[in-house]
């Protein structure tokens, strides 16, 4: 940790950054998001596998505009979010100082390409428990699946914490707030809830970097991540595209390739 603190401190003292987004010790020993503006605050800085919040979510905050350069301590999900945001033209190469810690060593990424390489070499296998859960749901009959999701989604209170926690939900105006016409019913009733979660999952299909923040933020314990995970797996198996691994646009649902296997598009 002292290496991380020393390096970050140097970035401050050499004027490279004026804000550092990292973690400090949370209530149960895990990391919670922390914002450092002075080197003397850095004694609280920590990083380990329990630092799970995806810090990329903060980059859209208007409060951060006043800082000239921001450093960010990225866990694996954050790195993937940064790549995906770059691919979607939301951030640019060199805009942030990006650090991570691997095998006890502090890594500073020279550019997005370096992140791309790091992500490619470290891409984890999907969590077997989650896969088993997905498989279990898939093995249900259509009616059982319908029952499962209507039951789970009926408890949704439409707080939109899933949206707020997602580093890739950055729209200025969310579709659910467009009311001419009202595409998605606002009252947290059965139909509106279903519409909202389908829309959310579809908008993240092939874009979701599987950080799990939506599900972690859901106060009602709805297994939201399963929806986006299922759609991602479909995209991966059909197009071979893994979200959050490329810094250039590589989005199966909006890019065109001359060798596309579908005929209709030509």
């Amino acid at each position: 940790m002292s290496d991380l603190i020393n390096k970050t401190s140097q970035f401050f003292s050499s004027g490279i950054i004026d804000l550092f987004i990292g973690y400090k010790k949370g209530r149960l020993g895990e990391g919670k998001p922390a914002f450092f503006t002075k080197p003397d605050q850095l004694s609280e800085l920590i990083f380990d596998e329990n630092c799970i919040v995806n810090l990329a979510v903060y980059l859209r905050k208007p409060e951060l505009k006043k800082y000239s350069k921001i450093g960010i301590l990225a866990n694996f999900g954050t790195l993937r979010a940064l790549l995906q945001l770059a691919a979607e033209n939301q951030i640019t190469d060199g805009q942030y100082l990006i650090l991570t810690v691997a095998d006890g060593k502090v890594l500073e990424f020279a550019n997005l390409k370096a992140i791309e390489e790091y992500v490619a070499n470290n891409l984890p296998k999907p969590n077997p428990e989650r896969l088993a859960l997905l498989k279990e749901i898939e093995s249900k009959s259509r009616e059982e699946r319908w029952d499962f999701w209507t039951r789970e989604l009926s408890s949704c209170i439409r707080c939109y914490a899933c949206r707020a926690a997602c580093p890739l939900c950055y729209c200025e105006q969310c579709l659910v707030e467009c009311n001419q016409p009202q595409w998605v019913g606002v009252p947290p009733t059965g139909l509106g809830n279903l519409e909202w979660h389908i829309v959310r999952a579809m908008h993240l299909a092939g874009r979701c970097i599987s950080c799990g923040e939506c599900e972690a933020a859901c106060p009602m314990e709805i297994p939201l991540g399963l929806l986006t995970q299922k759609l991602n797996m479909t995209i991966i198996s059909n197009f071979g595209q893994i979200p959050g691994t490329k810094r250039e646009p590589d989005y199966a649902l909006s890019t065109f390739k001359v060798d596309d296997k579908e005929n209709f598009i030509r």
Partner: peptide, 29 residues
């Protein structure tokens, strides 16, 4: 205020789970 609230990403869970928060919206279906 700004410094202490920086980690807030506006999910609203605090209010929804609060026993005294009373704000509401009115919507037609």
């Amino acid at each position: 205020w700004e410094e202490t609230s920086l980690p807030c990403f506006g999910c609203g869970t605090c209010a929804f789970s609060c026993p005294t928060c009373t704000c509401f919206d009115i919507q037609d279906e």
